[in-house]
Simulated scan of single mutants.
Amino acid sequence: MPFHVRDPEADAMLRQYAEEKRVGITDAIKLAVTRAREADAQSRAAKLAELKAIRDRLNSLPRTGEVADKAFFDELSGD
């Protein structure tokens, strides 16, 4: 299946990447997409780990037993 890059800048970037990696255009595309997906997965994993740390920190705090004052919060929001 042919693949045609219509954007001259993208085409130049792809060809330069292929040359730097010493691979063909198809392999350069596969390599670039694989690396981008891996970077996305690592970024997502890091964000999830950070959120888990925040959640764990909040869950470690002692419960006060206090109940939120609905009337107070309604007044703050203008209701």
Results as ranks from 00 to 15, higher is better:
L76C: 11
T26R: 09
N59W: 03
D74N: 02
L51Q: 13
A32P: 13
E66W: 05
G24V: 06
H4L: 15
Y17W: 15
F3I: 15
R63Y: 01
S60H: 08
E50G: 01
V5D: 04
T64L: 01
M13W: 08
F3G: 12
L31D: 10
A68P: 03
S43Y: 03
A45Y: 00
E19K: 06
R63K: 03
R6C: 07
I54M: 05
I29E: 01
K21G: 12
K52P: 00
N59S: 05
A18C: 15
A12R: 14
N59L: 04
R22V: 09
A46G: 03
G78Y: 05
E9H: 11
A41N: 15
F73S: 04
I54Y: 03
R6M: 05
T26G: 11
V23P: 07
L58P: 05
D7V: 08
R15N: 08
A41C: 14
A18G: 13
R63N: 01
M13F: 10
A45H: 06
S77M: 08
K47L: 00
A68E: 00
D11W: 08
A68I: 00
R44E: 14
K21P: 07
N59V: 00
E75V: 12
A71S: 10
V33T: 13
V33E: 09
V33L: 14
K52N: 05
E75H: 14
N59I: 02
G65N: 06
R63S: 00
R22C: 14
D7Y: 08
A10G: 11
I29G: 02
L76M: 14
D79P: 09
A53G: 07
A36H: 14
M1V: 11
A28Q: 00
A46W: 01
A36S: 15
L14P: 03
Y17K: 07
F72P: 01
K21L: 15
L14M: 14
E9V: 09
E20T: 13
A49E: 07
Q16E: 11
L48I: 05
R55D: 02
E66M: 06
L31M: 15
G24K: 04
S77T: 08
T34V: 12
A68F: 01
L31W: 10
A39F: 06
D7R: 12
F3E: 11
E19R: 08
D69N: 11
D79I: 12
I54D: 04
M13V: 07
S43E: 03
I25K: 07
F3Q: 10
A36K: 14
D74M: 00
E9R: 10
Q16H: 15
T26E: 10
G78V: 04
A32D: 13
V33G: 09
R55M: 04
D79T: 13
P62G: 06
A32Y: 13
T34G: 09
I54L: 07
R22H: 12
A41V: 15
Y17Q: 07
D40L: 04
D11Q: 05
Y17I: 09
V5P: 00
I29Q: 00
L14K: 06
A53R: 03
A18S: 14
R63I: 02
R6N: 06
A68T: 02
